[in-house]
Design a protein around this nucleic acid. Sequence first.
DNA 1: AAATAGTCTAGAATGATTCTAGACTATTGA
DNA 2: TCAATAGTCTAGAATCATTCTAGACTATTT
Lengths: 141, 141
Amino acid sequence: MIPARPYAFAIDRLRKAGLRPTRQRLALLRLMFDGGDRHVTAEQLHAEALAAKLRVSLATVYNTLNQFTAAGLLREVVVEAGRSYFDTNTSDHHHFFFEASGRLQDIPGADLKVSDLPPPPAGTTVSRVDVIVRVKSPDNN
Amino acid sequence: MIPARPYAFAIDRLRKAGLRPTRQRLALLRLMFDGGDRHVTAEQLHAEALAAKLRVSLATVYNTLNQFTAAGLLREVVVEAGRSYFDTNTSDHHHFFFEASGRLQDIPGADLKVSDLPPPPAGTTVSRVDVIVRVKSPDNN
DNA sequence: AAATAGTCTAGAATGATTCTAGACTATTGA
DNA sequence: TCAATAGTCTAGAATCATTCTAGACTATTT
Ligand SMILES: [Mn+2]
Ligand SMILES: [Mn+2]
Ligand SMILES: [Zn+2]
Ligand SMILES: [Zn+2]
């Protein structure tokens, strides 16, 4: 018997996002979401996919991550020029950024408050507030 | 008489940063700091330099901006993958980011407070806290 | 099963940034 | 004053992340 059931939820998520449930998208969706909250780059996910014997091109990984982000399944986080992290946690939260390792770690939204934010300039609305707490190891680096 | 005086302060700043006061560095320093608080990319500064009849290579603009940043004269701000802004304001402050135009605007440090920040992970110290308030025009984009 | 729209991929292209290696320049100190 | 030295500058190549292209392939619809 074919284990068609495990994919039922993933198929549904893709359909709701208006994306055809293809082999690549299903596999990437599971790689991203089967491991709790994650912050991965396209290159990292591509390497994971190859390690899992999945054949996907890097272009498809980029396309898929961007489509998932546009659909609200992922959130893109930028902390360093020339590198994008895709975050499976789309709720309101912030990040620690480990400068030495390049790793990101969630700070739950409730744990941190931004107050006295001046009103946004006339004619604009706030689309997102990002707080990045950069930390370093006093030793390494 | 040669106007050697206007450069006196700039020469001093470079010397204190351990950088030889060369023609290129002096000119770039003045371009950056003669106009109040600024947020510029390397490409933008290079274009300004050329417009001001200064002969500098883009490589030198990058080198210089990175040296100034390392010396604490500038601060690098990243809000989008693949693009670095160099900020002449090195005091504690945050930013509005206009998604439509790609422009940055300062939010004075005193105007915005981050509270209830959890302690940084063991063995690390906070090197900087960046708050980016992304705003969009409801019309354009 | 054919038609259609959507997707995938290798590889080229792009854009920002860094590197290379040789020419040039500021600083030092005899 | 001027060579020796360390530091700097530059054009162009290289690198790296990301996007684009165009044709082959696939899911969905009829
Ligand atoms: Mn993107
Ligand atoms: Mn840099
Ligand atoms: Zn996160
Ligand atoms: Zn600023």
